[in-house]
Nucleic acid binder design. Structure first.
Lengths: 131, 131
DNA sequence: GTAATTCCTACTAAATTAGTAGTAAAATAG
DNA sequence: CTATTTTACTACTAATTTAGTAGGAATTAC
């Protein structure tokens, strides 16, 4: 039951972007890589997942980088971790489609409940609190 | 953020033992293996972890097996999953000893809080509810 | 046009999780 | 007392997931 380093690094990226958000300047992965001591190549890979959540304005080329679209007070930690980890459910049967036997399954409510608990907790925390 | 199959199978074992608890008879892994369609060898391995939590009375040899020491209403799901998964913390820095920088770490409270949330939830559910 | 950057595809390595195999030791029924 | 059933112990192997790297194409500011 571990959060992956991908998830933790994703949060680091978002924290760095959150810190410069008010300045309205684009921050490059090279810069984040140096500040957080994470390889540029790995950050690029993590960024692929994060971009799907539509968190950023992107500026290619020199002086380019990423800029948050929303204020850090409006970005939940849950939305970040879900984007990075792809999902935040403790068992696969919980997700849409899921297990066909879920209604007969005695432990399904347990895992469903736990997944909801985790998502609720992480959705109650916002990026701004961790800058 | 998945519960491992080891954790889920551990719960299956406990559910089977919980169902026969009141009869006071020992239930063998061979029997559980057939009822749950899990290989005997794998169950043996999972049992090594569960035994550390001191859940069972053990009877070797013919007609032997395992018998719960406590009533299923007194065995929390948290204690089962912690025994099987070894720990239930979302990051390593949370556990005793843990990361030396935890007091300077901005996200430590987040992961600590989430781990507590998960443990609290699973400790509020008891085996009896899933028999 | 050059340097800095994102974007894209494809790999490789490491670690964890899942599962198997064989045998020894204990206990009981008969 | 012996055959059988069961746990206990030790050591593997296989599969899957996670972590991390490599190289180059496209884009843009200066």
């Amino acid at each position: 039951m571990k959060i992956s380093t991908k998830g933790r690094y994703a949060l680091s990226i978002m924290i760095q972007l959150g810190r410069v958000y008010s300045e309205g300047e684009y921050l490059s992965l090279t810069e984040i890589s140096e500040r957080e001591h994470i390889s540029l190549k790995y950050l690029e890979k993590i960024m692929i997942s994060l971009k799907k959540a539509d968190f950023f304005l992107v500026q290619k080329g020199k002086e380019g980088g990423y800029l948050l679209k929303k204020d850090p007070s409006e970005i939940s930690i849950g939305s970040i971790i879900r984007a990075a980890e792809e999902e935040l459910d403790v068992v696969d049967c919980v997700k849409s489609g899921g297990c066909p036997k879920k209604n007969q399954c005695g432990t399904y409510p347990l895992w469903k409940g736990l997944s909801e608990e985790i998502n609720l907790y992480l959705d109650s925390k916002f990026l701004k609190e961790y800058l």
